[in-house]
């Protein structure tokens, strides 16, 4: 499928490998004209070194340190545990403790439910908007596209503050208007708050995902549409039969990023927590780890939860990608 053997995991936005580059074969089967001496390949490490150094320091090392911390615990000696605290090896105790907490497990269930509803809704909306914009005159399409994309530039925390104002009765014009229609929505109530958060996330990221799909649409050669038109296909048929299959790579990419994003839901519930008592301190896995570290001062348990969360998120996105890849192979 791909020349560089990267189809095991990466969210390759393009279905086709770029053709400009030679295949990554190591057999030296390149054109004879290319002299080996003229390719100072060892210089590659000079270019890679700065990135790799920070990557190691700020991504790999912290994970290693977190794993290490997650295997430790604080022990207090002496009667009643009043003696000097000391750090001791705990094995997998912290993981066992995390997995015994019903609230922590429920938080995973909650973000999974959230993702199962929010991600399809958001991507469907993004897809529909992208396809519809294709039917509009260029000038209007550009303006609308920018409008839809605008929320992406609003930080999640500020978006949550804004929607928070729109959710709270008394200050919100939305509840004011609905109140006149005799509807009293309780956006921050126990059953609704999860979907109120979902609305914030949809608002923030639909435009971004739409833009990724639009970019893929633009890369479809004109001739294809021309051919479809000659065959008598209307706009709806063109959209469903031609555009939809061709934007698949973009959908896969946006889906993977959305899954990762959902798993790490943090800022939105944390900010809404003040307004909605239904948002507990272990509402999402990330929130739970945060409050263990800063609220309960149990960094070892927090580290274990962070490691679990990162692992689950990676397993989910890898599983999704390999499912997609397998389906594609089966389809051929």
């Amino acid at each position: 499928m791909t020349t560089s053997g990267t189809d095991t995991g990466p969210p390759r936005p393009t279905g086709t490998p770029p053709t400009g580059a030679p295949p990554a074969g190591r057999g030296g089967a390149g054109p004879a004209r290319r002299r080996r001496s003229a390719r100072p390949d060892r210089k590659a490490w000079t270019f890679l070194a700065p990135f790799l150094a920070v990557y190691l320091f700020a991504m790999i090392l912290p994970i290693g340190y977190a794993v290490h911390q997650s295997l430790l615990k604080v022990e207090r000696s002496g009667p009643l545990g009043l003696g000097e605290p000391s750090v001791a090896f705990a094995g997998l105790d912290n993981y066992a403790l995390a997995l015994e907490q019903t609230a922590f497990l429920e938080s995973f269930g909650r973000v999974l439910l959230f993702g199962a509803v929010q991600v399809p809704v958001m991507l469907l909306l993004a897809l529909v908007l992208a396809l519809l914009l294709d039917q509009v005159k260029d000038r209007w399409a550009g303006l609308l596209r920018a409008t839809y994309f605008l929320p992406y530039g609003v930080p999640g925390v500020i978006a949550t503050l804004l929607w928070g104002f729109l959710y709270v009765p008394g200050i919100s014009p939305v509840t004011d208007l609905l109140g006149k229609l005799d509807v009293q929505p309780d956006f921050l109530g126990y059953d609704n708050v999860l979907w109120s958060i979902a609305n914030i996330v949809v608002w923030e990221f639909t435009g971004y995902n739409m833009l990724v799909i639009v970019a893929q649409l633009k890369s479809i050669p004109e001739e294809l549409y021309e051919a479809a038109r000659i065959d008598g296909a209307g706009p709806w048929e063109t959209a469903l039969r031609i555009k939809l299959p061709l934007v698949r790579p973009a959908l896969v990419l946006t889906c993977v990023f959305s899954i990762i994003g959902t798993m790490q839901l943090f800022a939105e519930p944390l900010v809404l927590k003040r307004l909605a008592p239904a948002v507990t301190s272990d509402y999402t896995p990330n929130l739970s780890a945060y409050f263990d570290a800063f609220g309960n001062a149990n960094v070892h348990l927090a580290a274990a939860k962070s490691v679990l969360l990162a692992a689950v998120a990676m397993v989910l996105s890898f599983t999704f990608l390999s499912l997609v890849n397998r389906k594609r192979r089966d389809g051929r």
Partner: peptide, 28 residues
């Protein structure tokens, strides 16, 4: 450039793409 370990480095990079960044904040 063609060099030994190129694919390994690229795989590391891709793993980094899939790593949730806020799950990394606490370890950091």
């Amino acid at each position: 450039y063609r060099f030994r370990g190129r694919e390994a480095v690229f795989r590391c990079v891709l793993a980094g793409v899939l790593l949730p960044s806020t799950a990394l904040a606490l370890p950091l």
